Simulated assay, not measured.
Amino acid sequence: MISGFSHVTCYVLDQDRAKAFYTEKLGFTLNTDVTMGDGFEGAGHGFRWLTVSPPGNPELEIILADPHMGNDDESAAAIRALVAKGALGTGVFETDDVRKTYAELSARGVEFLQEPVERPYGLEAILRDDSGNWFSLTARVAGT
């Protein structure tokens, strides 16, 4: 039986920049930053396993993955183009107070595509990471 979700993949354009963005601007915790050796990819070369977690939620690790991780060159180029274009909405970050979190993250230089707005499911703002991925920042209404 499946009991939860432990890792999600977020493709990034530059892992060093992404590490700084997620830890310094979003305040996430660095979990793992290691280079896996040969044999972990079809091409026979290693890759960097870089994961972060939202504060206080270590059981969810976000893999800040280079598009080449597990993909051939053509697929990696397509993923890279979609990320850079801002075409990928990667997920929803939860918060108790969208307006407060919006103000804190804005002060740290996080780019928002949408200020906090009331929605049927709660209050939502849309932020963008340093690669172009966008995320909903949401405080849900009870029952949604």
Rank of each mutant, 00 (worst) to 15 (best):
I2H: 11
S3C: 09
G4L: 02
G4P: 03
G4Y: 15
S6L: 03
S6V: 13
S6A: 06
H7P: 11
V8S: 07
T9W: 06
C10N: 05
Y11H: 03
L13Q: 01
L13T: 01
D14W: 01
Q15K: 00
R17D: 11
A18S: 05
A18F: 03
F21N: 01
F21K: 01
F21R: 13
Y22W: 11
K25D: 02
G27W: 06
T29I: 10
T29F: 10
L30G: 11
L30Q: 11
T32S: 14
T32D: 10
T32R: 08
D33Y: 12
D33V: 11
D33H: 08
V34F: 15
V34W: 03
T35E: 12
E41Q: 15
A43G: 12
H45Y: 08
G46Q: 09
R48Y: 08
W49T: 09
L50D: 04
L50Q: 10
T51N: 14
S53N: 10
S53H: 10
S53C: 13
P54S: 02
P54D: 05
P55H: 07
P55L: 09
P55F: 05
N57K: 06
P58W: 09
P58R: 08
I63P: 14
I63D: 12
I63R: 04
A65E: 07
A65M: 12
D66A: 04
D66T: 01
H68Q: 15
M69I: 10
D72Q: 11
D72P: 10
D72M: 03
D72G: 11
D73H: 15
A76W: 08
A76T: 04
A76N: 03
A77P: 08
I79E: 08
I79P: 13
R80W: 13
A81C: 10
A81I: 14
A81R: 03
L82E: 07
V83K: 07
A84R: 07
K85R: 14
G89V: 04
G91I: 07
G91W: 10
V92H: 08
T95S: 14
D97F: 08
V98N: 03
R99Q: 12
K100C: 14
T101F: 15
T101W: 11
Y102M: 03
E104P: 01
A107D: 01
R108T: 02
R108H: 03
G109E: 09
E111T: 09
F112T: 00
F112L: 00
L113H: 01
Q114I: 05
E115H: 04
E115P: 14
E115C: 07
E115R: 05
P116G: 04
P116S: 00
V117T: 15
V117I: 06
P120H: 05
Y121R: 00
Y121A: 06
L123G: 00
A125K: 00
I126H: 02
L127S: 04
L127D: 01
S131F: 08
G132M: 05
F135M: 15
F135R: 07
L137I: 09
L137C: 12
L137Q: 15
A139L: 02
V141S: 14
A142V: 11
T144D: 06
